[in-house]
Design a protein around this nucleic acid. Sequence first.
DNA 1: TTGAAAGCGCTACCAG
DNA 2: CTGGTAGCGCTTTCAA
Lengths: 369, 369
Amino acid sequence: MRKKEEVNISLIAKESGVSIATVSRVLNGTVPVSADKRQRVEAAIEKYHFTPNSLARSLIRKETKTLGVILPDISNPYFASMFMEIERNALAEGYSLFLCNTLYGGSSHGIPNTRKEAYFFDLMIDKQADGVLIIGGQVDMLSVEEDYRLALKKLCDRLPVVIVGKEIPDVGGIFIQNETGFGVSSAVNYLHLLGHNRIAFVGGQPGVTITKIRLDAYRNVLEELGIPFDEQLIVLSDYYVDAGYSAMERLLKSNVDFTAFISMNDSVALGAIRCLADHGYCVPQDMAVISCDQFAGAAYQTPRLTGINQHHETLADIVVHTLVNAINDIHEPVSRIITPELIIRESCGTALASKTHFGINAIQANRQK
Amino acid sequence: MRKKEEVNISLIAKESGVSIATVSRVLNGTVPVSADKRQRVEAAIEKYHFTPNSLARSLIRKETKTLGVILPDISNPYFASMFMEIERNALAEGYSLFLCNTLYGGSSHGIPNTRKEAYFFDLMIDKQADGVLIIGGQVDMLSVEEDYRLALKKLCDRLPVVIVGKEIPDVGGIFIQNETGFGVSSAVNYLHLLGHNRIAFVGGQPGVTITKIRLDAYRNVLEELGIPFDEQLIVLSDYYVDAGYSAMERLLKSNVDFTAFISMNDSVALGAIRCLADHGYCVPQDMAVISCDQFAGAAYQTPRLTGINQHHETLADIVVHTLVNAINDIHEPVSRIITPELIIRESCGTALASKTHFGINAIQANRQK
DNA sequence: TTGAAAGCGCTACCAG
DNA sequence: CTGGTAGCGCTTTCAA
């Protein structure tokens, strides 16, 4: 079924006995058109179900009202919820979205693939997207390959690009770094208030910026609290449930003592909890758990997961509006303060959960100094 | 930052001292071009980082190499995994994807919104997508609103459209109905083999095709097995964890006896299990659970969830290739048999899980007659 | 207000 | 093999 595109602006013009310029005018409502001509045109449009060809329009206007969203894996709940919020904002601004999954990293989801990211960068140039949003992928690495940097630079040279992550020098996009490690700090503080001193860190991938930021925050709070840092308590994973399982398995095999752990996100927490269960340990009776990044459904797990709400919705808003501004040559930074929020549920102990109020206040007080 | 589009085909032509026709030829590699001209052109392309404008190309070729994917909610793991697989196939065929979330239905995610679906249908026409994939949304309802039907018909009149679901008369798209209720049958059979006779059905939304198909399958198997049907054992929900919770709550309040239940998917199962836990019931000791639609991570829940793998990957393949064929005017139906697979884990009893082999054989045998 | 006409950047046909 | 050129469908001057 080939597209039946025989109905176009000149057909409408002919049908209604006006010039195509006039049809264009009623289409865009820019310049006034006499009432009777307008009606004839509208009738013809209705009759033929005419829709102007946006390709032709974009060719002239040099804008497609389309944005590209490039991320590793939409089946990861973090990216999915980000996308939903991005779409909501983009739609409100009149933009549609291309979604590109680069599948970079993540033990469960195929091999790292730098080329695929570069492929999508070029694709967005090709498709004449008005702007591009990049969330995660190689940009999250502490150091990126030169190929990647060049591909990203090429993209940023051609289009407005907003990147969630730490700035890569000399590429020219707009970088928005969200993670501050504040969530981890609250988590460690909370666990300490609960009496834990041996707190493991089931972290993200090695070499990833967010891992470093969170690990730094973890060490700093430990130091503030006078808890000795123990390298053995750090195990790396990535962002998926199987990685959480294997990380915990390594931790248990290493035979270090610990009574609590912080995990990268809820998926990792779930995997780790499953592993603990397989070894006869029960959460929260034998072990307290906090996740750094809460997913939907945390409140329905058994045990209900205590964790940090990073307020990604707000991040999505900022990111979209920064991009839209950049497209419109507005370069005032869009800023809003995002404060990660500790949501206390059961995974650090039900009994202790009643201390919620005390805990939070104590943490706040602690942060003041 | 406006796009800097000053570099175009005629610049390249001028730079390399050939006609734009020749540049076009090396760009597309269709017609042979003499070696030295080709090299000069390639040098110029390299020098200016020239990329042909796909808008102009699409305007002539009347194809954009772009597909639209319209679904309710990408943060629902079912749709996310479908999308990943769709993208994999689409990419292999040279297509990029628009993603449109219609948020139709789903208690956790905003109000039903017919207009949004129609909006995206029109958008895909406007964006000149080469084809559209529709998965879920109002098309899943047993009966659709006339507004919706008209909007869908308009889309199908303009573009090749593949719809996952039951055929709606007189709209003209290609409908692919996946669900047969076979998964539910295996589930009930399995539970029966385990000795359960009071099996609740924590189903989907009322008025939805898949709910009806699964409910019919449930009743049929019950009848085959000589188990009396009890209306009270049916509670409706939707596809999210909170709905699973509240459905189970209603079931418990109604005070009917049951020793097992089937849930719409893993999210619903999780919510229901959480509710049971809150009422002092433990899975699988007090209650057996099977989910009709397995999500990633099922194997890491506590208890590990027994459920049906519906093999959505295969469905995604079929759907993409059917659409691509339709775009190329090939109308042989792409068909492949998708057999839902019962994955036995712990949620129907760990001890019983060792009977896996027996169970499956028995079910197969049962289906033969 | 309106129409004619000049493109947007590219492909594809027609001569040569 | 190659160049000239006629559009693709639309917007936007420029005159009228």
